[in-house]
Write a protein that binds this DNA or RNA. Structure first.
Lengths: 237, 237
DNA sequence: TATTGCAATATTGTCGACAATCTGATTTTC
DNA sequence: GAAAATCAGATTGTCGACAATATTGCAATA
């Protein structure tokens, strides 16, 4: 009886691939907030029938990055400043919990992975592709969730992340600036390796706050533009 | 311009109705954990084609109460003791946050609704239907999330709730006891109306702990039975 | 006897077509 | 001319059938 560990087979169904494609399109901003997803058009572009496409869209609706109105269509969710603030505040709470849970699980492998992802973040800054920067930053941040030994927490955070990534992408597309503040990541990594859990939690709280402040400000300016994209008309009799 | 408030139209699509039916079946334990959902059979029973059924199932997979293996089937999720513990610990964290957010929003209407739901809980204890007791208890508990003015938090909690409801139902089906501890609800309601937020948070933390202790214990005994229901055979070469 | 190969069956995944619904423009009616 | 009714077009929701895949039972083989 051998002890070889095999990775599970990649599920190769059209639906899964469509989910990947659509998700990427939304998270990178290729599909903009409020935009309608025409089933026929997309299915033809992907060379797929509408059935798996619709199933994929159902998943993404439930995942919270699409929204659906019966007989009207499925749309990319709108991003309001309050959404960002909410995501931020919840993220703070979850971060604290994640650090607490991950703390006793930190091993040499943890530190190694931490360094690896930190390096990836630094590497990405050289890159032209801004979405890559966002991805690496989120992956670095996600480590404390992956090591918390708490699937539900991880899942919850990943749902949050989808939205965060959308927000960041939107931010990046509008202004063409790099993601702010890099040396704080240095502190973050150092604290996660250290002995003072409270300090790490405190830092996470403030460190993230910085990134978010900018995002929220950006979202507010967007809202002032009062773009009437697909505005729902209110019926007053 | 009138000020009449209309309730939104119930989305009358088969898919939505199927979601409701399936969800209820799972949450009440009519569909047991690990059980496979045969598409053809269910679609025939519901007098519906497989398309809307499959879409509904996709939603529930994403919602976390079903799980799907490509070309193998869709199953009701298994409930492990660790799942319950995880749900519990996350719920603690979220509760504290929810109370903090709801605190400044408490109005007379809040107290009224609190009393209403509390009464519903007490009413349900007279009922024979145990699932009703679970529902009312969760609804009472959910109030702090509904008043937090934080859609993302509410959504996160509702996802949690689905699982909790499953766990409770499982618990109830096995032993035929009523839900434990009722007078703690009295304290809970009183504290939520009071001036001491910290006290309310502390109580929530401990009050829920009680209910959970029992659930976890129950789950552990279940696991010892080592039921091989739909056990996946491991391939050792 | 345990294992492998293969056919038969059942079930899931995907497709193309039709039905139900919404939207917008055009026509009708006052 | 303005409001209501009607109609055509487009899009989503649903259906039944077919294709792809997994499972099961049995025979063949070592």
């Amino acid at each position: 009886m051998s002890n070889t560990d095999f990775d599970p087979i990649v599920d190769t169904t059209r639906r899964a691939e469509i989910v990947t494609l659509l998700k990427r399109a939304v998270l990178t901003g290729k599909l903009e907030p409020g935009q309608k997803l025409n089933e026929l058009r997309i299915s033809e572009q992907m060379r797929v029938s509408r059935a798996p496409l619709r199933e994929a869209m159902r998943e993404l609706v439930q995942e919270g990055i699409l929204t659906s109105i019966p007989y009207a269509g499925t749309f990319v969710i709108e991003v309001t400043a309050k959404d960002i603030e909410d995501a931020y505040s919840l993220n703070q709470v979850l971060d604290e919990f994640a650090i607490e849970r991950t703390w006793p699980n930190r091993t040499a492998a943890f530190s190694a992975e931490l360094d690896r992802r930190h390096a990836a973040v630094k590497q990405a800054t050289l890159d032209i592709d801004t979405t890559r920067q966002i991805e690496t930053a989120l992956q670095l941040h996600g480590l404390i969730y992956e090591w918390a030994d708490h699937p539900l927490l991880l899942e919850t955070w990943q749902r949050l992340t989808s939205r965060l990534q959308m927000y960041f992408a939107l931010h990046q597309r509008a202004r063409n600036e790099p993601v702010p503040s890099l040396e704080v990541h240095e502190d973050y990594v150092r604290l996660l390796k250290g002995d003072d859990m409270k300090a790490a939690q405190r830092h996470a709280r403030e460190h993230i706050a910085l990134d978010f402040e900018e995002l929220v400000g950006f979202a507010r300016t967007l809202e002032k533009r009062d773009r009437a994209s697909a505005a729902r008309k209110r019926i007053d009799t």
